[in-house]
Every structure is written in C-alpha cells, then in structure tokens.
C-alpha cells in the first residue's frame, strides 16, 4: 500500500486515514506496553492512547517525521501519566503507579521467553532488569527496547541529558556481574568477524 516510510508519511500528512491506521498499528502496541509499565490502571492507559492518537491526527501537519512521531507519542504518554499521577496520588495512593519500589510483574510472554530461552544468563539478566529501580529500568527500556537516543529519553522522562546517562550507568553497574557471564567471545565471533 505504501512503498516506503516517506510515502507513508506524505500520505498521512495529506490526511490519508489508511496511512494513519498504519502508523497507529506501528506504534500502538509499544505505546500501550510503555504506558502499562508506568501505570497499573490499564483502562486509563487505553484512554490516554486514544487521546494521543487523536492529537497526532489533528497535529499531523506540524510533525516532522515518523521518528518524531514515536518520540512525541512516548513523551505525551509520560507527561499525561505524570500529570495524572500528581493529581491522583493524594486520592488513589501510590499503589496505582509503578514507581521506584514497584517491580515488574512478569508478563506471560516473559515467562514463556524464560522457559524457551536456552541461556540461563538471559533469564538472569531479565530478572535483574526487572528488579532495577523504576527510573533506571525505564531508561533501560527506552534505550534498549524502544531504541531512543539519550536526548530523546531525556525529553520523554523530562530529565536532563546527564541524568539519563546517570540512570543508565547505575543500571549497568547493577547488571555488571551478569555481564561477566555473557559469552562475549561467542557473540563476538558471531557478529563481528
């Protein structure tokens, strides 16, 4: 339907609803996944996703490119959630929010992956990441799963560039012991010979 991302982008800006649907489909699941890791009220996350997509449709002409969209979506998601967080923290208490102290509830996918994975190290690494403090984990997920740059992560999390690097460094040193077990040599031979 769309030859490449440039075509898709052009069609979207011209108001092609099919292009918008493709964009929705591309980003909705990761955006939902990200939101659900920030807030346990999944209905609220769904509503926010709906609002966000309405917003990018309305503002489609002023958005720069597809990559910007992903950044923009994540940034609004986080802004909206933290604004709601501040408002509702008094009412609902902290239990609703996955903050520093709360850990990931492993998803079924995670458990399956754990079961299937032949590498013990991978499972250990997953457990260790799941146990990281909230913000460090969020920075790790944004950097390594969602592939955002440090500047983008800073924008999304509303912190400065150096704080992103600090979060990542702290997380990485917490994981350091596990890396010693990563079969680096094998990986090397594999990827970079």
């Amino acid at each position: 339907m769309f030859q490449d991302e440039a075509c898709l982008w052009k069609a979207f800006q011209q108001g092609d609803i099919r292009a918008f649907e493709v964009i929705y489909e591309t980003h909705s699941s990761t955006l939902l996944a990200y939101g659900k890791r920030l807030c346990t009220d999944h209905h609220l996350v769904k509503d926010i996703v709906q609002d966000i997509f309405m917003e990018i449709w309305t503002r489609r002409r002023t958005l720069r490119d597809l990559h910007t969209i992903k950044y923009y979506l994540f940034k609004i998601m986080r802004n909206k959630l933290s604004r709601l967080h501040q408002k509702t923290a008094v009412l609902a208490g902290e239990g609703l929010w996955l903050d520093e102290d709360n850990q990931f509830t492993p998803s079924i996918e995670f458990l399956i992956t754990q079961q299937e994975t032949s590498s013990k190290q991978l499972a250990q690494l997953q457990n260790a990441i799941a146990r990281l403090p909230g913000r460090q984990r969020e920075a790790i997920m944004l950097a390594f799963y969602h592939d955002f740059s440090n500047d983008e992560i800073a924008g999304i999390m509303s912190i400065n560039h150096q704080s992103v690097i600090n979060h990542l460094n702290r997380a990485l040193s917490a994981l350091r012991d596990l890396f010693l077990k990563v079969p680096i040599l094998a990986l090397l031979l594999h990827y970079f010979l």
Binding site: L32, S107, I108, E109, Q126, M141, F144, Y145
Partner: peptide
C-alpha cells in the same frame, strides 16, 4: 533481555 520484559501486544 528487554524483549521479554515488555507487555505482550493485545
């Protein structure tokens, strides 16, 4: 590792 830590698509 992060792949397995993401909520599955619904």
């Amino acid at each position: 590792a992060t792949v397995g830590l993401t909520a599955p698509a619904n």
